[in-house]
Simulated assay, not measured.
Amino acid sequence: MKQKPATLRDVAQAAGVSLITASRALSNPDIVSAKARERVRQAVEATGYIPNMLAGGLKSKRSLTVAGVFPALAVTEFLPIMQALSSDLAREGYQLLLGETGYDPAREAAVLDTMIGRQPDGIVVVGLVQTQRARDRLRRSGLPVVELWELSDRPVDMSVGFSHLKVGSTLGGYFLSKGWKHVGAVTGADPRARLRTEGFRTTYGGDVPIAVVQPPSNLERGRRALAELLEKSPKLQAVCCTSDMLANGVLTEARARGLRVPQDLAVCGFGNTDFSAYTVPSITTVHVDGSGMGRLAAQLIMDRCRGKVQAQSIIDVGFRLIERESTGGQSAADAPLGPEYR
């Protein structure tokens, strides 16, 4: 038979105190004697009592939770955001509730509806909210909202990120500086990856063959994408990938075909994920400060909860190009960070 969860009345009975004393010992311990607090603490441990945070939140108007809505939880580039956001919120006594949208606008809207209904103290969305209905719902909720990983001059509330078009444009200029005549691109089908590819093609100019893969990126899709590009452009000299995971797949397929990197084929990624410096060869990539964005988002939400008005509601964190062995640069141990762009 399933055991019923312990109640506050069970705690009071086990501690030998009144119900009101047990309640005060948990919600406002400074007004209860040290002896009574200790008896209640021991009773909580003995009974396995878990306080009803929702009930407490209704009184304090705080749920002590923040919702984090991610396109995909397993995407390597998003992990530093998740970790920094979670740890910084935990230091403030808050917990991070995670939702996953699968890059689907309709699913994102449904996840946001659910999160709003749970009344968190703030919502962090990785990427710009995709539908006008969801944006309107968030504004009407009155909750602090931070859109991460992308910039907008008209955010729902606050925006912390960088320009994906500028990332692509910077990579296009880098490829031009290398003198490569036959280049291609491997891109995810999501809006931000397409923006990076658009920036790359516009700056590089000419006819750039493209292989499009469905998100989230993985090594297999990177391998298949290089095979597709080589069919379109047998003289391919360099490939620009919209993620390090895709770049790693391209490296793997190149090796399987006996192509030397970078002598026969140069490869560039995006995200500066934790493995990119340690592949053989190491991957030239674009560094974005995911941890810093996570910390900024936590700070903005906490400041708003304290009633503090932010000096900035739109923060451009910029990015850096890191040249490594996959495009003829230095080894990971020696390669310096390139120039910073904002």
Rank of each mutant, 00 (worst) to 15 (best):
K2I: 15
P5V: 07
L8S: 04
R9P: 12
D10T: 06
D10V: 01
V11F: 13
Q13C: 06
L19V: 08
I20W: 13
A25C: 08
A25P: 03
A25G: 03
S27Q: 13
N28M: 07
N28H: 09
P29I: 05
P29S: 02
D30K: 14
V32Y: 11
A34F: 14
E38N: 08
V40K: 10
V44G: 07
A46S: 12
A55L: 11
L58A: 02
K59H: 08
S60F: 03
S60A: 14
S60L: 12
K61A: 03
V66K: 02
F70W: 05
L73R: 06
A74R: 12
F78D: 12
I81G: 09
S87L: 11
D88T: 09
L89T: 08
L89A: 04
G93P: 07
L98R: 02
L98S: 03
Y103T: 06
V111P: 10
Q119S: 06
V125M: 02
D136V: 01
R137K: 12
R139M: 10
R139T: 07
S141E: 08
P144N: 13
E147Q: 07
E147C: 00
E147V: 00
S152M: 11
D157G: 02
S159I: 02
G161E: 08
L165G: 06
T170H: 04
T170C: 12
K178R: 15
V183N: 14
R194Y: 07
R196S: 03
T197V: 05
G199T: 06
G199C: 09
G199Y: 06
R201W: 09
I210S: 13
I210P: 10
A211W: 02
L219F: 05
G222H: 07
R224P: 00
L230R: 12
K235I: 13
L246V: 05
A247N: 11
N248L: 15
N248Q: 15
G249I: 03
L251H: 01
L251S: 06
T252I: 02
A256V: 06
L259C: 08
G269L: 01
G271T: 02
D274K: 11
F275Y: 13
S276G: 09
T284M: 09
V286G: 11
V286I: 15
H287M: 08
D289M: 13
G290D: 04
G292D: 14
G292H: 05
L296K: 09
Q299L: 10
C305L: 12
R306V: 12
Q312C: 03
I314W: 13
G318C: 14
G318S: 09
G318W: 04
F319M: 11
F319A: 10
L321M: 11
A332F: 10
P336R: 02
R342H: 14
